[in-house]
Design a binder for these strands. Structure first.
Lengths: 343, 343
DNA sequence: TTGAAAGCGCTAACAG
DNA sequence: CTGTTAGCGCTTTCAA
């Protein structure tokens, strides 16, 4: 009576409240929640009834303290880039939130200093605020992976360990070369033979990966790539300039780009010259961003299966946090091609 | 010696470890962390040294349990909408993560069932997993606000309490009518007189708000609005159809749209008819999405000051969670206009 | 200014 | 199958 009364809405009910109401010990309530099989049917029903009546939900902090687990996975969010079409990570976050919920995890976002890629990880780790991390920007040759590895911090990478092929952490990635292969083959099937490439600077491993799909596909058909490629910054302006130069100097009839941002640059050039995308010159982008989906006449684009990536990452996470921990081999997923009016 | 040795990397150091190393009591270490002013300078320095040496960070779960606060704010993420230009919420999440970090909070994302807008809130609330919520979709006339209010759950809304003008919860919103006013005035200044509106269906309060900015501005100049407005679904296809009909029946020289998605529909129609956006027909969108930023020749768009929204929301959150709690009046922020080639 | 004791709500380990 | 005991790491009394 004393404990139940008066707390109508002030403090949430505790295990003890449920135990008292159900006439059992606290431990039995705990078991009812975590190991229902251990209880006799009628006891379980009685406890369950008390739980429902009180609207009891185990206190997270107490459980976390006791079990040394938070059921939170941390993910660092890079500052949004204005003026680009890069929303891949936002799309991924959506998928990750959905998938991890099904596995009983929540996603904790933390901010990113562009200069210090390690900022934020350290504190969350030492304060045991998260059980594991999902690391997304493995491409900058940045030290996150090895740093986290050295601290024995559980993490799964979205992205191959390009610089450390012998890395032992779990990772999931999308085969960029397969994507541009898809794009290039699609254009070849449409009758194009002079297919240009606009990609990122050479120090980007992802960029070189994507580029390789284009070049190997052309070469496998006996077509030349010389003079048909350009490596620039990932901006609309760069894509615009590069495509203008390529059109003048190499007369391609189609472009494959390392990103939708660059592809939009190509569309700018075409618009300026009165050329119609898809009819006069074909363009294929990469990432299937919202931009690709809504720009007239639709931008054909390589689509990463982010839902699947999230699913694989959560699967890897569950292995990593299991008893005993299990680390499977890296997973490489195949992208698809979203064909639209530009090709 | 016994406690320090052997735990090199296994378990993170605790308050007790620091206390032992510094030769003080655990309470003194706690004070060093939370109330440094209470310590003598030399003691503080000694403790701080021990903290640094051990790499100590207070255990979150223990602190949460004791203080009944998680320093987490929950935000529900709606499923991403493919085929639209709506990334406002993603942009907002970025800002919120940044801003709340400065205030000592982390953002916990949880998934959204489209059918049940309450899903997820209940459990996080009862398990005291988050200190407060940020609620973003107040416009559907959905029950979140009143539901949360009834449970005395602290929350701040991004969006006015349209249906409950006497609501007592803190909110922050952007003045949509002011945005379309800005857009319409901009077009009037450019010499346009027949300015059409493409907006959402009448049951959208936000849509009606944005529409009102357009209509009141035209009327204040003595210009008619009759036959110049259309209310449709928020899709590219709807925008395309609506603009085609309006062009045929009302010959507007400019369009103001309730979203970038609809504006892209207008661009589709213009492209089909060989009309150049900006030169032949002006178009203004709403949200300043990435699409607006990169599409040729650039889509003029109303931009919501999401960074400021996030800042105001965090400020309101701090008030709400303060002792005693403080609830200020609602905050209405002014949008700006990003002028580009389409106008 | 510093220290000792108590307890937040939960679960692991054992005893009955 | 159920209950008792102990303690996770921290902060809030209260004493010294």
């Amino acid at each position: 009576m004393s404990s139940t009364a008066g707390r109508t809405s002030a403090t949430p009910p505790t295990l003890a409240d449920v135990a008292e109401l159900a006439g059992v010990s606290r431990q039995t309530v705990s078991n009812a929640v975590n190991n229902p099989d251990l209880l006799r049917e009628d006891t379980l029903a009685r406890v369950q009834e008390a739980i429902d009546e009180l609207g009891y939900s185990p206190n997270r902090a107490a459980r976390n303290l006791r079990t040394r687990a938070s059921h939170l996975i941390g993910m660092r969010m890079n500052p949004a880039q204005e003026g680009t079409a890069n929303a891949t990570m936002d799309r991924f976050v959506h998928s990750l939130v959905e998938t991890s919920r099904e596995a009983g995890y929540h996603v904790l976002l933390f901010g990113g200093d562009h200069d210090d890629p390690l900022a934020g990880y350290d504190d969350l780790l030492r304060s045991t605020a998260v059980d594991a991390f999902v690391v997304t920007d493995t491409y900058l040759g940045n030290p996150q992976a090895s740093w986290l590895g050295a601290r024995r911090a559980p993490f799964v990478a979205f992205g191959r360990p390009w610089d450390h092929p012998d890395a032992t952490h779990p990772w999931v990635d999308v085969d960029g070369a397969a994507g541009t292969d898809l794009a290039t083959t699609h254009l070849l099937d449409r009758g194009h033979e002079r297919i240009a490439w606009i990609g990122w600077r050479k120090d980007s491993r992802i960029g070189e990966d994507r580029r390789s799909g284009w070049s190997r596909t052309l070469r496998s058909r006996g077509l030349a790539t010389t003079g048909l490629a350009s490596r620039v910054e990932d901006t609309v302006a760069s894509g615009r300039e590069a495509s203008a130069v390529l059109l003048d100097e190499a007369q391609p009839s189609a472009f494959v780009c390392a990103s939708d941002t660059l592809a939009m640059g190509v569309l700018h050039t075409l618009a300026e010259r009165g050329l119609a995308p898809g009819r006069d010159v074909a363009v294929v982008g990469f990432d299937d961003s919202q931009v690709a989906q809504v720009v007239p006449p639709g931008l054909t684009s390589v689509r990463q299966p982010l839902e699947d990536v999230a699913a694989e990452i959560v699967k890897a996470l569950e292995g990593l946090l299991g008893h005993p921990p299990y680390v499977g081999p890296g997973v490489l997923l195949e992208p698809t091609l979203a064909v639209r009016g530009s090709s």
